[in-house]
């Protein structure tokens, strides 16, 4: 059986799903931590997606912490205590960086999660009414299944993984802000490149006039200029991508939400080069207006 996508079932009217904030304050040794606790079924597909997930469920209180928690000094074998419920979590593994609303994740067996989440006001004792409750459930479905029809039938909302990300706190606002900043940077890059090549063209005005006086047509001079622009843009973009990647690789991924992806770098470089070329067209247009007569009376 193959699955094409993960879906998340989130509460609508279905009584089994009760929304809960997964964020907790916790203590490790003398440190105070903020964690986001996620309950998953040991042995289920979600556990298989977590590095070291096979450790989950071997003990009732064993949890796997993501690297952001480990960065605070938490080690395998350590014990984390949740502040209000006093539920103890024993660290049995460390998974790669994962966060929910910028808070590092801790993966727990679903039963432990229920005890921590619904037992906060009862000193860690799970009320009978909370048996079987969950905030949401993850689904893996076969291709072709109409998940929206299933959701309507059950009285729940079913969303894609990407839609679920968008539903996490601040995600849309933050990504929209970042996208806006990136888009503006492309526009600014085009303006800067345009300004650079405008100054470049003005400085070369005498040379361009000379070339025209020697018989070079507008087309030849513009093609020559565009060729030079393309070379400069390619070299500058490649250098920028290398320097950016170099500096980016120095940023610790565990503490800063930053990832270097080849596809994103290549896409940004291509957009930057194209934006630069568009910006330079304004400058290149000036070349057509240079009068060869300036070569007469010009000093070398």
């Amino acid at each position: 059986m193959s699955y094409n996508e993960n879906f998340l079932v989130i509460p609508a009217k279905f009584p089994t799903f009760v929304p809960e904030d997964p964020k907790f304050h916790a203590e490790w040794d003398i440190l105070s931590l903020s964690i986001a606790l996620v309950g998953i079924e040991p042995g289920g597909f979600m556990a298989k997606g977590v590095a070291g997930g096979s450790q989950l469920g071997r003990t009732r209180t064993g949890v796997i912490v993501s690297r952001g928690v480990a960065a605070d000094g938490v080690r395998v074998g350590g014990r984390i205590t949740l502040d209000r419920s006093s539920v103890a979590l024993h660290v049995v593994g460390i998974a790669p960086t994962a966060t929910y609303g910028h808070v590092a994740l801790v993966y727990a067996p679903i039963a432990l999660w229920r005890q921590a989440t619904y037992g906060q006001v009862t000193g860690g004792v799970l009320p009978a009414s909370a048996q079987g409750l969950a905030s949401a459930a993850a689904l893996q479905v076969r291709p072709g299944i109409d998940v929206s029809a299933v959701g309507t039938h059950l009285g729940v909302d079913i969303v894609t993984k990407q839609q679920a990300y968008a539903g996490s706190p601040g995600y849309v606002a933050e990504t929209a802000t970042m996208s806006l900043i990136i888009d503006f940077l492309y526009v600014i890059a085009a303006l800067i490149v345009g300004a650079f090549f405008t100054v470049w063209t003005i400085q070369r005005k005498a040379d361009i006039g000379l070339l025209k006086a020697l018989g070079a047509s507008n087309g030849l001079v513009i093609r020559d200029a565009l060729g030079q622009v393309a070379l400069v843009m390619a070299a500058a973009t490649a250098a920028g991508a290398l320097v950016g990647s170099g500096i980016g690789s120095l940023i610790p991924g565990g503490t800063v939400p930053f990832a270097l992806q080849t596809g994103a770098i290549v896409t940004a470089a291509v957009i930057l080069a194209v934006a630069g070329l568009v910006g330079s067209l304004v400058a290149v247009r000036r070349i057509a207006a240079v009068d060869p007569i300036i070569a007469l009376g010009a000093a070398s």
Partner: peptide, 19 residues
């Protein structure tokens, strides 16, 4: 455009200060 060609093919310029 034809004048550019003509300048190249039939006219030689010696400029002030060599240029």
């Amino acid at each position: 455009k034809q004048r550019s060609t003509l300048r190249h093919d039939r006219v030689g310029f010696v400029f002030q200060g060599s240029n």
